[in-house]
Design a protein around this nucleic acid. Sequence first.
DNA 1: CCGGATCCGAATCGATACTG
DNA 2: CAGTATCGATTCGGATCCGG
Lengths: 234, 234
Amino acid sequence: MAARSYGQYCGVTTAVEQVGERWALLIIRDLLVGPRRYTDLKQGLAKVPTNILSTRLKELQESGVVRRVPLKNCGLVYELTDYGRQLEPIVLALGRWGFQQMGDPGPDDAVTADSLTVALHTAFRPEVAAGLEPAHYELHVADVVLRAVVDGAALQVVQVAPAGRPVDPARRVGVPVPGAADVVIAAGPGIRRVVSGELTPDEAVAQDVWRVVSGDAGMLDRFAATFHIGPGGS
Amino acid sequence: MAARSYGQYCGVTTAVEQVGERWALLIIRDLLVGPRRYTDLKQGLAKVPTNILSTRLKELQESGVVRRVPLKNCGLVYELTDYGRQLEPIVLALGRWGFQQMGDPGPDDAVTADSLTVALHTAFRPEVAAGLEPAHYELHVADVVLRAVVDGAALQVVQVAPAGRPVDPARRVGVPVPGAADVVIAAGPGIRRVVSGELTPDEAVAQDVWRVVSGDAGMLDRFAATFHIGPGGS
DNA sequence: CCGGATCCGAATCGATACTG
DNA sequence: CAGTATCGATTCGGATCCGG
């Protein structure tokens, strides 16, 4: 199954031959969040045909991007190799770039825990966060619930729901079990307009783009400052 | 011709829907070097079927990545929009990432002027160059001849051969017509090992990976310091 | 339930030929 | 020069099935 070659001796070409096939980068996006089972990936990428998922995972292993790791208990997970993890800044930059062109969601567009987790990372501005007090947000979008813990220039996102049981607690090192969030935000897809700066936090509340379920409503401004993708992906 | 949707409301997904189709990123890579005619692209991407090239260009225009510009004289060129140009750091980073995995060229692998031009940019280390004297390299690889002018943290690459006549002189603003190069280097594909640091410049000469056609052989060290992609794409 | 493999119609891609 | 048209070869998508 030699990957279809583009017939050029070039780094870009080589990269695209490895991760440019359909679904490959989305698999990598989800694996950036953490190791995932075959079933997790299938669920997170609802529309990927199972044979394609299986084929891509094999190809990504051959390229040294992904590794297959049996679990002690039972089952197995796929995880990025160091080489694969080097794609993180690239995938995040692609996410910022694509974000600018996002319109409103289509009727069949889903939001998954992993895609939203990565989206938070794409929008995260460490240089802004570094100048603010630590903050702990709980964000609800569709049926996804995340907790974003911002401390200085570091962002930690924990998925609360849908309940994916932790695959291997040993790998979750450093992930705090968050206590109470400073604010619980329930948002719709229009949250995009807050992140882009098209709406101020207050306008977004007025237009019911998001809503404070509990906690300090003043945190909305801080959220909008911390998670922002301006023109040009800045 | 609705692009096949991945069914997710996510920036990465949106980006991949726009530039993830086969050949799209390579078209963009070539357009990063400058505006190109349909025929230029077809020549630079020898293996792209003409109907695919035509389809991609249409799609990239719809996405606002590429613009079609009629020339005053006759003919027309495709060029990146501002939005498309924002992909430059991403394509360069992908090139660095893929570079690490490059082996030796297959028998059908070609080196084109545009791919080599972009490759020089991927390997360029502005922070190193900033500490060195200005330098002017002429590089021959296969039948491609480039001139790379390094001045401080800036790199300017001019394509000398194959002779692509300048499409629109007005767009070439700021491109110097270089005088004599400090050194003329003829290299084979093994130059990859110099860029990766696997070979020192001297070893590369000894193994006939490259050769000084004329000029100052001492410039080889400077070239290797200026153009380098280390482990992890550093 | 997990981790796929198999089958088949639909869509895309690749190669070549052809045209304004 | 700048594409369209055509058509066989591949790949993708959707569904089903299977061994543990």
